[in-house]
Design a protein around this nucleic acid. Sequence first.
DNA 1: GTAAACAGTTACAAAAAGGATACTGCTATG
DNA 2: CATAGCAGTATCCTTTTTGTAACTGTTTAC
Lengths: 117, 117
Amino acid sequence: MDHLDEKACKSAGMAVRDTLDTINGKWKLLILLTLFKGGKRRFRELSKEINISPRVLSRELQELEMNKLVSRTVSDTRPVTIEYNITPYCQTLGPVLRAMKEWGEQHRVEILGKKSV
Amino acid sequence: MDHLDEKACKSAGMAVRDTLDTINGKWKLLILLTLFKGGKRRFRELSKEINISPRVLSRELQELEMNKLVSRTVSDTRPVTIEYNITPYCQTLGPVLRAMKEWGEQHRVEILGKKSV
DNA sequence: GTAAACAGTTACAAAAAGGATACTGCTATG
DNA sequence: CATAGCAGTATCCTTTTTGTAACTGTTTAC
């Protein structure tokens, strides 16, 4: 963050806020990481695995899908099966998550590891 | 994000969540940016400038202070004046905010700029 | 044809976040 | 001594988020 005038600052704020909003909430990150590490899942599977009620899961998946971070594919087996997965686009979040992970780690040390200041 | 096993994934998730929690909420980012661009402020000044109720502002500032992102200094003028400012440590958030700003900007294009898919 | 699984939705309840307003204790100014 | 400003806190209220549980409609297996 450097040399930002009034306008640049406000628009930067909006962009940051957009990012914040798309990965925010109690579940979004967990859903993404779960799909990331274990691959595609069906609705019930996810629901049981991370212990989230269907109502909430449904909403979260819809939002993630709107943001193109998660794909929903219907296979016409009988009965139809529906699978959720992370999208290739989701990879673009990599730098953001990496930066957040690193800061979070060092911050934990900063806060907890230095009681004597 | 690559080659993360179960454990690494979980701890990365925690670190990301920590970061998320410290800058989350309706006001934290705005407060930081306001102090960043305009320098130190007093309680009432902030309250009026960004139009936040004292109750909420008080809580937010306390949380930011606990996370060492904002400093609170008491000058013993008469009457005492208290000034809030961002800390040098707050600069460490730079990479995170930059990454989020960039993703937010490109994401807006991705979502709004391509209606015909 | 009854039960059970799937992918959700609906209606309702609880909890968390945010907001409005009045108030405290202090000092200074008229 | 009344008024006003400062830095908050206390009380009450509204909105948003999250959770619980029951229910759709479809299909398959018994």
